[in-house]
């Protein structure tokens, strides 16, 4: 499922004449933008049943260019991380 398919399915769920396709698009974009904003602030996003997004720090390290073998300094970086919620984990394993 892509984002546009998700938007279409959402629109199909709400046959409301006040809402246009463009509104559903804004809703879906807003939700994921908001999660991204939170992570950029270093905040956690906890959605019970679905899962939790957080940011984990990776320390600076000396890495190597695998082609040349030259050592390069890799600076500290942050990675987004997702932990699946209990309900979603159980649903995935139900079949």
């Amino acid at each position: 499922m892509t984002k546009s398919e998700l938007i279409q399915r959402l629109a199909d769920m709400y046959p409301d004449p006040r809402l246009y396709h463009r509104d559903f698009e804004r809703v879906v974009n807003k939700i994921f933008d908001e999660i991204g904003d939170a992570l950029s602030r270093g905040d956690r996003v906890e959605l019970r049943g679905f899962g939790a997004f957080s940011v984990r720090a990776r320390a600076a390290r000396v890495g190597r260019n695998p082609r040349t073998g030259a050592s390069v300094h890799v600076r500290e970086k942050y990675l987004p991380f997702f932990k699946t919620g209990k309900e979603l984990r159980e649903r995935i394993n139900q079949n």
Partner: peptide
Amino acid sequence: MAGNTVTR
């Protein structure tokens, strides 16, 4: 990480 938690 100084963090708030964002929810539904």
